[in-house]
Amino acid sequence: MTEYKLVVVGAGGVGKSALTIQLIQNHFVDEYDPTIEDSYRKQVVIDGETCLLDILDTAGQEEYSAMRDQYMRTGEGFLCVFAINNTKSFEDIHHYREQIKRVKDSEDVPMVLVGNKCDLPSRTVDTKQAQDLARSYGIPFIETSAKTRQGVDDAFYTLVREIRKHKEKMSKDGKKKKKKSKTKCVIM
């Protein structure tokens, strides 16, 4: 069974824990209790493949930012979460993405942009803004509501699919490099 290491990042209060708990335990946590770091595991079937999701729910508070490099190193894919009623959390996505790329030393890291709290009427981040940002990053965008469960499975499952595509691409690139290195030079 394939294991996928997913990391949920975003500013404090955007609903990272609520999304994760909704996926794992099928219930909505409405009281806000700032996370330092929590880890969850769940076995699911995605596109006919049974897999184990190892999900790291991270601290959004700035005082825990020193811990970010460590979990970013171990993560295979990242859910970059903002709240649709919090423009600052949307603007912060850029910083999370840049930090992930720096730590992973790669421009090509599996990510999904997630606009959470889409059940709320007080939207300050337009869907088109988020779609445009995701398009500019070359990553999928999904709106979710941890409260109603809308888009929750889709967000995590899409990230797994992005990781699969990335692994497939990397193995193809690896095979191309191996083929090239088999060419021999004969000096007579």
Rank of each mutant, 00 (worst) to 15 (best):
Q25N: 15
F78I: 07
K169S: 13
V9E: 03
D38S: 00
T50N: 13
L56V: 11
M72G: 05
I46C: 11
K117V: 15
L120R: 14
G75T: 08
G10D: 02
L56E: 15
S39L: 14
Y64G: 09
E76Q: 09
I46N: 09
Y40E: 00
Y4H: 11
L53W: 03
R102S: 06
S89D: 14
F78M: 13
Y40D: 00
A59C: 06
I36Q: 01
T127M: 05
L23S: 13
T127A: 05
G151I: 07
D92H: 03
I21A: 03
V152C: 07
T58G: 02
Y64H: 12
D92E: 13
E49I: 04
K177V: 04
V44H: 09
E37N: 00
S106P: 04
N86Q: 08
D126R: 04
A59R: 02
F78P: 00
S65D: 11
R41K: 03
K167Q: 05
V186G: 08
N116D: 14
Q22I: 11
V14W: 14
D173P: 04
R41N: 03
R161F: 01
I21K: 01
L133F: 05
M72W: 12
D38C: 00
I142V: 09
D153Y: 07
F156E: 01
S39G: 04
F82K: 00
T127L: 05
Q61L: 08
E49P: 12
K180V: 14
H27E: 13
H166R: 05
V44W: 06
D154A: 06
Y32H: 06
M170L: 07
E62I: 05
Q43W: 02
F156V: 06
I84A: 13
V103C: 14
D173R: 14
S65N: 03
N86D: 13
Y40M: 00
I139W: 05
A18T: 04
F156A: 03
Y157L: 08
E76G: 03
D132R: 04
G13W: 12
G115W: 10
R97T: 13
R161P: 01
V125G: 09
G60T: 01
K177L: 07
L23T: 15
P110S: 02
F78S: 01
A134V: 10
A59Y: 01
L120I: 05
